[in-house]
């Protein structure tokens, strides 16, 4: 059920894997925001080109991209059905009540390309950064520890709880549970309630065990910050590219 975790350390041989996370994270976030700012169609090829180069640098296989596009892709599909036919006044082609509109088609093109470009960069970012490292980096960048602790612990238990849940489903099936449907809503509510109760009970024990080992006394050590020149060069490249895109969008 859950296998989307960072392809991570396996790819750490790539340029992207080695890029110091404390510089990679802000660099790429600035970049995707500059992507999202684009409204001018003429900038779209640049977006696609730069995201492809970035994806190349991450040395991830193409399949990694395809396997992850399904969920958000569904949303995009819905937009593709709505926008060209309902958005705008300039009618390109009419068939009965159905009218293909220019403005809608332009919006769809813009949205699709921006989505694909950002998607590639985000996959490159997350698939080369294991979550524990990402969390510590966020902490080092000043994100409140309550959030980063919450993130780390949730991540730690997701795998266990998913397999708990799977075993509960199996057990229910063996006692004749017909599978998830509207009719079996009550059983599902019971299963969900049981999962919450068990998580709650386990949380008490986890908390006790953590307290015994000194949780809450002082901060955890942050990862060492030892950037090399290449790290800064990559950051500079990302920032320059972002600035170029923003300026082009404003002045062209």
């Amino acid at each position: 059920m859950i296998n989307g975790a960072a392809v991570g350390s396996a790819e750490s041989g790539s340029l992207f894997g080695r890029w110091e996370t404390r510089l990679k994270l802000p660099g790429l976030i600035i970049l995707v925001f500059s992507f999202s700012l684009v409204q001018d169609l003429r900038l779209l090829p640049l977006l696609l080109l730069s995201s492809m180069i970035i994806y190349r640098l991450s040395a991830l296989p193409f399949t990694c991209l395809v396997s992850r596009v399904r969920l958000p892709g569904f949303f995009l599909l819905a937009m593709a059905v709505i926008l060209p036919f309902w958005s705008g006044q300039t009618i390109l082609w009419q068939f009965g009540p159905l009218a293909l509109r220019l403005e809608g088609c332009i919006s769809l093109l813009l949205i699709t390309v921006k989505f694909i470009a950002i998607f590639m960069v985000v996959v490159a970012l997350f698939a080369t950064t294991p979550l524990p490292l990402l969390t510590r980096t966020m902490r080092a960048l000043g994100i409140p520890w309550l959030l980063t602790d919450l993130l780390l612990f949730s991540y730690r238990y997701i795998f266990q709880l998913s397999s708990d849940l799977r075993r509960t489903h199996t057990a229910a099936h063996l006692r004749g549970f017909k599978g998830i449907s509207l009719i079996s809503l009550k059983t599902m509510a019971n299963v969900t309630g049981s999962l919450l109760v068990r998580s709650h009970q386990q949380a008490e024990r986890v908390f006790q065990a953590m307290t015994l080992r000194g949780y809450g006394n002082g901060d955890q050590a942050l990862p060492e910050f030892r950037p090399v020149v290449a790290d800064y060069l990559l950051l500079a490249a990302a920032v320059l590219l972002s600035a170029a895109i923003v300026l082009a969008q404003i002045f062209i």
């Binding site: 059920m1 859950i2 309550l146 602790d149 919450l150 780390l152 612990f153 949730s154 991540y155 730690r156 238990y157 997701i158 266990q160 709880l161 998913s162 708990d164 849940l165 998830i180 449907s181 509207l182 809503l185 599902m188 969900t192 999962l195 919450l196 998580s199 709650h200 386990q202 949380a203 008490e204 986890v206 908390f207 953590m210």
Partner: peptide
Amino acid sequence: IPRAALLTAAFFAASLIHI
């Protein structure tokens, strides 16, 4: 935190079920 984290994880796991 442990309670909130475990419950977050539980919600996460449960929200993967499709009806």
